[in-house]
């Protein structure tokens, strides 16, 4: 998955909420480059702009100013169908509260990104079984999310995020709702994904979680304060 081009490049990203008369800047002059295969943790206290940054990275929100290059394309001002397609094929989301659709089975949840990519049913099915195998949940494929434990739900969510073989996985506090044992389990799974070359951007306010991630970007008052790369460890 290594290429010369960075997976993502943020240039002078600004995000301002509020009204013109009473602007409320959340992100100011954020510059960030993530190369393929990197594992980045974005940390910072609440109100630092982590979620806003993640929403922009996830193409759910657009910056007020600045450019966002995702695989060399400036997606900052894409329209809805193109942004949706970017989310669908290039990004994978993992959320704190799993965000599985409760009335669909595990398999159908994992299938959904493939459905919106208009993949035929047979291919979807085969791909999903593979993914569930990968996260160790093949035996749970016809269960409902409500019948699974928190850790299992998050593993389903990880399988779903991988469905369309995305360029980057965005994880928003993936261990926030889990106990320490399952947290370690999930972090281990993400670590293994990164080892196999997957680019991951993780957001957390938990230092312990951040400590296990090679690169650490800390955000404060909408600006990047530190960007440190930890040597060795794995």
């Amino acid at each position: 998955m290594v290429s010369n081009q960075p997976i993502l490049k943020l240039a002078k990203i600004e995000k301002v909420y509020g009204t013109a008369a009473n602007p409320l800047p959340v992100l100011r002059d954020v510059n960030l480059t993530v190369d393929a295969g990197e594992y980045v943790a974005i940390v910072g206290p609440s109100g630092a702009g982590k979620s806003t940054l993640l929403n922009i990275l996830g193409c759910l929100d657009q910056p007020t100013n600045g450019s966002y290059y995702l695989m060399g394309e400036d997606v900052a001002h894409f329209d809805d169908p193109r942004l949706s397609s970017v989310r669908n094929t290039r990004l994978g989301f993992i959320f704190q509260s799993f965000k599985l659709i409760s009335h669909l089975s595990v398999l159908e949840n994992v299938e959904m990104p493939l459905f919106y990519a208009r993949k035929p049913k047979r291919i979807r099915h085969r791909r999903c079984l593979e993914l569930l195998e990968q996260v160790g949940l093949s035996h749970r494929k016809s269960h409902r999310p409500s019948e699974l434990s928190g850790g299992e739900c998050q593993r389903v969510a990880i399988a779903r995020s991988l469905a369309n073989d995305p360029a980057m996985i965005l994880a928003d506090e993936p261990t926030g709702n889990l106990d320490s044992v399952t947290s370690a389990d999930i972090m281990g799974l993400l670590g293994r994904l990164n080892d196999s070359g997957r680019t991951i951007v993780l957001i957390t306010h938990d230092d312990e979680v951040a400590a296990s991630v090679p690169r650490r970007v800390s955000l404060r008052d909408g600006r990047i304060e530190h960007d440190t790369l930890r040597e060795a460890s794995n």
Binding site: G58, L60, S84, S85, T89, L100, I101, P113, Y116, N164
Partner: peptide, 9 residues
């Protein structure tokens, strides 16, 4: 959820 994982309007 559907929007996040790639459903368009």
């Amino acid at each position: 959820i559907r929007r996040a994982i790639g459903a368009s309007r």
